[in-house]
Simulated assay, not measured.
Amino acid sequence: MKKLLLAVVFLTTTIVSAQKGSVLLGGNVGYSYEKIGESKLENFEFSPKVGYQFADKWTAGVEGSIMNVKTTGLDKTEKYKIGGFVRYSVPLSEIFSVFADLGAGYQSTSLNDAKGMYANLTPALFINMKRGFGLNFSIGGINYDNLDGKNDPRQERLGFDFGKTFNIGVSKNFAL
């Protein structure tokens, strides 16, 4: 199971820096498990993206996320996100490019039927391996989100997590 999950993560993470007129497909798959004493927390997330590169350095598209969180003694929580993103990429050479994704959209969670908005800015590095296949690296970004539930007070979060997270992925560019 762990090998299959690792293969899925490797094949589906992030979107490629591409050429004008191409379609970009990608996303992230993540899993985490935490145990403190008798309490266990399990988290699985799938976040696909689809975009179109409309100019040499600009890509726009849609993104989504489905997350399941299981905590000992509590009901399973499901979280959903749907929104758009825009990417600006700058080639440094034939092999390296840097890019930044700006995403924003709607989110909801099954816990107390909460709904809200999210926004994030994530800089990253793309390494072109061969024929549009490449590796993507990011080390965090800036995140904002809010949630309003039926019986809970409004929640707002602002995060600056450069260096706290590390993502690596494989991507493919599909020319039209």
Results as ranks from 00 to 15, higher is better:
Ser39Asp: 12
Phe46Ala: 13
Gly73Val: 14
Thr109Phe: 07
Phe174Pro: 08
Gln19Ile: 03
Phe44Glu: 06
Leu176Arg: 13
Gly116Tyr: 12
Leu11Pro: 09
Leu5Asn: 05
Arg154Asn: 13
Phe10His: 03
Tyr33Asn: 07
Asn120Pro: 03
Leu147Thr: 07
Lys172His: 06
Ala100Pro: 06
Ser32His: 03
Asp161Phe: 00
Asn136Leu: 04
Glu38Trp: 00
Gln107Cys: 03
Gly83Cys: 08
Gly51Tyr: 10
Phe160Asp: 09
Asn151Cys: 05
Glu34Tyr: 15
Leu74Val: 06
Ser17Thr: 05
Thr71Arg: 11
Ala60Phe: 12
Leu41Asn: 14
Leu102Cys: 12
Asp113Arg: 10
Asn146Ser: 11
Lys172Glu: 02
Tyr33His: 15
Asn146Gln: 13
Arg154Met: 01
Gly21Thr: 01
Gly51Ala: 15
Leu147Tyr: 15
Asn143Pro: 03
Lys76Tyr: 04
Ile95Lys: 12
Gly30Thr: 08
Gly26Thr: 11
Ala18Ile: 02
Phe137Ile: 15
Phe46Trp: 05
Phe166Arg: 02
Ile95Glu: 11
Phe96Trp: 15
Arg131Phe: 04
Thr14Arg: 13
Ser17Arg: 05
Lys150Tyr: 09
Phe10Lys: 02
Thr72Arg: 09
Asn167Thr: 14
Leu25Asp: 00
Ala175Cys: 00
Leu176Ala: 00
Asn146Trp: 08
Gln155Cys: 00
Gln53Asn: 10
Gly51Met: 13
Lys150Ala: 09
Pro91Cys: 01
Gln19Tyr: 08
Lys3Leu: 07
Val90Cys: 11
Ile139Asp: 03
Arg157Lys: 14
Ser32Arg: 09
Ser108Ile: 00
Ile95Pro: 02
Thr77His: 01
Ser110Gln: 10
Gly64Ser: 15
Phe46Lys: 02
Leu125Tyr: 10
Met117Glu: 14
Tyr31Cys: 04
Val8Cys: 06
Met129Phe: 06
Gln19Asn: 11
Phe174Lys: 12
Ile95Val: 15
Lys76Ala: 15
Phe174Ala: 10
Ala104Tyr: 03
Asn28Ser: 06
Val86Asn: 06
Gly61Pro: 07
Ser89His: 14
